[in-house]
């Protein structure tokens, strides 16, 4: 066989392989969707029939519960911004050679990670008023969530900053950059890129943990669901609606997180 004859034959084989791969991928995706639809469907039918769910309730109270999603998102986003600011300060403190910065940051992390989020929510909303510090429920909830997540994320940021090769800081210094400029322009942007998956993860956890502030009567998703569910004796439907909305929110934010990670990967090593 000459080379000229061999080439089309090989091209044919490659085409066949690619086509087979596409078929495999499509089959995989098909099974994936099938499993999800079947399992969720069975669960739904079972709950529907066994729980005597009323369609009327879903239509009449569904919108009321859904409005809570707005509060959930508001609280999560603002608390996340607060958490990121605190985490950044905390990480800088934990890496500082200044004894006071290091001690304050370490105390913050230890104290907040060492106590339950629920206790922190109670403390800020119910206990502080006795000391004359009175906050509305929503600010109290945001502060509790923000402080709590800020402490966990402090360690994420610290690890991210330490994961930037030391040669980057040295190169910046060798170019005459003062310490702060080198941190802000060279180290931090690379650290942020490293921690984005972990931060996204925490944000998704935050959306769900924001349900804890229902305990101080913030009218978010879970509060509305449990209130209307109990008064209409449709707790199963109400809580399921809330769960599905949380799930939907996390799927949406996971999608944006993927997109963000892809964008940040630009120019990566």
């Amino acid at each position: 066989m000459t080379a000229a004859e061999a080439r089309p034959a090989r091209a044919q084989v490659l085409d066949d392989i690619l086509a087979a791969r596409r078929r495999q991928r499509r089959w995989f995706r098909g099974q994936f969707i099938l499993v999800w639809v079947v399992v969720v469907g069975i669960l739904g039918v079972f709950l529907w029939s066994a729980g005597r769910v009323s369609l009327d309730f879903i239509f009449s109270s569904g919108p009321y519960i859904l409005q809570g999603a707005g509060i959930t998102i508001l609280i999560s986003v603002v608390a996340m911004v607060l958490a990121i600011i605190l985490a950044l300060l905390g990480a800088v403190g934990r890496l500082s050679s200044n004894a006071i910065s290091f001690s304050v940051a370490s105390l913050y992390v230890s104290l907040v990670r060492g106590t339950p989020l629920l206790v922190q929510i109670y403390f800020i909303f119910l206990a502080l008023p006795q000391a004359g510090i009175i906050l509305d429920a929503i600010p109290a909830g945001i502060i509790a969530l923000g402080f709590n997540y800020g402490a966990y994320m402090t360690e994420i940021f610290r690890a991210g900053i330490q994961a930037v090769p030391p040669s980057q800081r040295e190169a910046a210094q060798a170019l005459g950059m003062p310490e702060r400029l080198a941190f802000r322009r060279i180290v931090l942007p690379q650290a942020v890129r490293i921690v984005i998956p972990a931060i996204g993860n925490d944000f998704i956890a935050m959306i769900k943990d924001s349900s804890l502030v229902s305990i101080i009567a913030i009218q978010e998703l879970l509060w509305r669901a449990s209130r209307v569910g109990r008064s209409e004796r449709q707790v199963l439907a109400a809580i399921t609606i809330a769960a599905v909305v949380y799930w939907g929110l996390t799927i949406v934010f996971s999608y944006f997180q993927d997109k963000l990670e892809q964008r940040m990967a630009r120019g990566d090593r």
């Binding site: 090769p165 040669s167 980057q168 040295e170 190169a171 910046a172 942007p189 690379q190 120019g267 990566d268």
Partner: peptide, 8 residues
């Protein structure tokens, strides 16, 4: 190791 800034 060159130490170029990878994000620039």
């Amino acid at each position: 190791e060159f130490a170029l800034f990878p994000h620039m």
